[in-house]
């Protein structure tokens, strides 16, 4: 997933023999920093509007979204390079996927309980 982005050879997984030691700040870092800062601002603005009613589901949902780390585990385990990286990657997949499954499940269970009062008097 990372290699196609921008095609930075020095960081490419699939050509691990090429890279040279670069001591300056890589340009990938700067572009990631852009993304991080923008995402943090978007997150801040969107999440600020979440009703305090739903703060618990909010936390379990962001947990489930955060479990997207699973894709990193999949790539590392799937590349099957060394035993240690495969094992660590697979363990990461298990840990993250449990969050993804559990997080979505419980968030939905909680949200299903929130009901409006029946249209009656008032």
């Amino acid at each position: 997933m990372w290699s196609p982005e921008g095609g930075h050879k020095a960081r490419s997984y699939f050509a691990p023999d090429e890279p040279v030691k670069e001591e300056h700040v890589p340009s990938d870092f700067i572009s990631n920093l852009y993304v991080f800062v923008l995402a943090a601002f978007v997150g801040f603005e969107v999440i600020r509007r979440v009703s305090p009613l739903l703060h618990t589901p909010l936390m379990s949902l962001t947990n489930a979204l955060d479990a997207i780390v699973v894709v990193a585990g999949i790539i590392i385990a799937g590349r099957h390079e060394t035993v240690i990286s495969t094992v660590l990657g697979a363990a990461a997949v298990a840990a993250a996927f449990s969050n993804m499954v559990g997080g979505f499940l419980i968030t939905d269970r909680m949200l299903r309980m929130f009901k409006r009062s029946k249209p009656k008097q008032r």
Binding site: P52, L53, L54, H55, T56, P57, M110, M113, F114, S117
Partner: peptide, 18 residues
């Protein structure tokens, strides 16, 4: 935890607009 009480009351079938 943040918002926990709301979840517990919602579970007790209290409508959320209350």
């Amino acid at each position: 935890m943040p918002g926990h009480m709301n979840v517990l009351l919602a579970e007790a079938d209290i409508p959320y607009d209350k």
